[in-house]
């Protein structure tokens, strides 16, 4: 049951995109998201679509996997589309009862939907091809300059990776305890809200205890290995840019330039 949920949704493959440095992917995703809101012409959509299709092809992640990420935003998407569709003023196309659909409304809602979908697909391309640990590593390195103004970047990154590491463990634990209590006749599904909330006690108490126990064990293990924060700490796998990363950056610059140029020329 719970085991089926994937967090971080990393899709293991050995593609060019997977092998890129996480920093490249983070910067690239940011640039891509900004680029989505820079243009306002039809040609821009073609360029973005081509770019996105190229990245998806290169990443070798099956398309239905990428689509899965869209399920989460269906509600948001519907609301955006409906609001834009009915509330934009302009030349009316269809009129019925109190609703009017305008030409501008249709155009805006359609393009808004495409932008949102591209936004989600683009950012999930990053999470699908990068492990959560790589992501935090990349983030730590990119936020490195903030250390100068006394932001504990390493500690924040460490907390993030520990939190991410614990999600699957706790999910598995939840699944296990849930099954154990179901085996003892517990019922987590039926009853009203109060009864449902009460039925969670046999699940939450053991879960909290185990979370604290694990946290305690981890802290002890880190202490035993003399962990003392980021000061003077070296990495086993330091992030190094490869040739492909420079190529990727070049492609991003080209892409970005193309989007801006089009907006200026057209």
């Amino acid at each position: 049951m719970i085991r089926d949920i994937t967090i971080g949704q990393y899709y293991p493959k050995d593609s060019v995109i997977h092998k890129l440095d996480p920093r490249t992917k983070l910067v690239g995703t940011l640039a891509y998201i900004i680029s989505l809101f820079l243009f306002n012409n039809f040609l821009g959509y073609i360029v973005v679509t081509l770019f996105l299709v190229g990245v998806i092809k290169a990443s070798q992640v099956p398309f239905r996997f990428i689509i899965k990420g869209l399920k989460a935003i269906i509600m948001l998407l519907m609301i955006t589309v409906l609001f834009n569709l009915f509330l934009t003023k302009g030349t009316p196309l269809v009129e019925f009862w109190i609703f009017t659909i305008t030409k501008e409304g249709l155009r805006i809602s359609l393009f808004m939907a495409i932008r949102l979908i591209y936004l989600i697909i683009g950012s999930s391309m990053m999470t699908l091809t990068t492990t959560p640990n790589q992501l935090t590593d990349g983030l730590e390195s990119l936020l490195g300059p903030l250390k100068k103004i006394k932001v504990p970047v390493h500690e924040i990154a460490m907390m993030m990776s520990i939190a991410l590491r614990f999600i699957p463990i706790l999910l598995e634990e939840t699944d296990k305890i849930m099954k154990a209590q179901i085996a003892r006749g517990a019922d987590f599904e039926s009853g009203n809200l109060v009864k449902k909330a009460k039925s969670l006690v046999p699940l939450l108490v053991p879960l909290f205890i185990s979370a604290f126990r694990r946290a305690n064990d981890l802290a002890m293990a880190m202490e035993a290995r003399c962990y003392s924060g980021g000061e003077g700490r070296t990495k086993m796998k330091p992030l190094l840019y490869q040739v492909n990363d420079y190529r990727a950056y070049a492609i991003f610059v080209l892409y970005f330039a193309a989007i801006i140029a089009m907006e200026i020329v057209l």
């Binding site: 154990a180 209590q181 179901i182 085996a183 003892r184 046999p202 053991p206 205890i209 185990s210």
Partner: peptide, 27 residues
């Protein structure tokens, strides 16, 4: 489930009640 009792690995992780007796009463 009442007829086929299943004791999981490390079953002590499922205990939650205030005392031993109450916990055994849960089932």
């Amino acid at each position: 489930r009442s007829k086929v009792g299943l004791v999981f690995q490390y079953p002590e992780h499922q205990l939650f009640e205030v005392n031993v007796f109450e916990d055994v009463c849960f089932g």
